[in-house]
């Protein structure tokens, strides 16, 4: 469960050592993501610090059944990009009560973390041309029409896993 321990330590003990480890791995990647998305080095530095500070403050919102830590940090960075670099609003779906207070199912969390790892390896195996399109899509270089050529990713298993977790969550809400 890559980085889940660190997030838990930040949430439960304001552990700065855990944060330092997380920072060393993610901050340079978030900065890279922002630069590839068109930000200057200065802006990318500023926004990536902001993203990492948000990771610290919102650690309690991380739910391992819903996302890997990389995925969660990606969504924070993406939202900042839309917000600050594009100056656009991003409507978000209605929140579901994910989060530690809903007593996450450990098996669900573990399975999702493993699926995320497998997706990462599967992505590495994609034909070069398709992988390039996927990267450009996530850097915000493609319009939604151009993106159709980048779909057809191996998402079946991770989607089923997430669907299962959602069904369980719905069940708990009743």
């Amino acid at each position: 469960m890559a980085w889940v321990t660190e997030i838990t330590a930040i949430r439960e003990a304001q552990d700065r050592k855990a944060f330092a480890a997380l920072f060393a791995y993610f901050a340079p990647r978030v900065k890279s993501f922002l630069m590839k998305s068109g930000a200057s080095a200065d802006v990318a530095e500023d926004v990536s610090q902001d993203v990492m500070a948000t990771v610290w403050r919102k650690a309690h919102l991380f739910d391992p059944r819903k996302a890997s830590v990389s995925t969660w940090i990606f969504t924070i960075a993406r939202n900042r990009r839309i917000d600050i670099l594009r100056k656009q609003r991003r409507p978000e779906p209605e929140e579901l009560p994910w989060g530690p207070e809903a007593a996450p199912d450990q098996a669900d969390a573990l399975a999702l973390q493993q699926e995320s790892e497998q997706l990462r390896s599967a992505m590495a195996e994609l034909p070069e041309k398709q992988k390039d399109l996927v990267l450009r899509a996530y850097f915000g270089e493609l319009t939604h029409r151009e993106i159709s050529e980048a779909t057809g990713l191996p998402l079946g298993t991770i989607k089923s896993r997430l669907r299962l977790a959602l069904d369980r969550l719905r069940h708990q809400m009743k």
Binding site: P28, R78, R120, M123, A124, Y138
Partner: peptide, 21 residues
């Protein structure tokens, strides 16, 4: 929603694969 979360996971994999700057 599950499909959207799967596409978010693709974004996570993209971040993982970036060379750090």
């Amino acid at each position: 929603r599950a499909r959207m979360l799967a596409f978010d996971a693709v974004g996570g994999a993209v971040v993982d694969d970036l060379s750090p700057v």
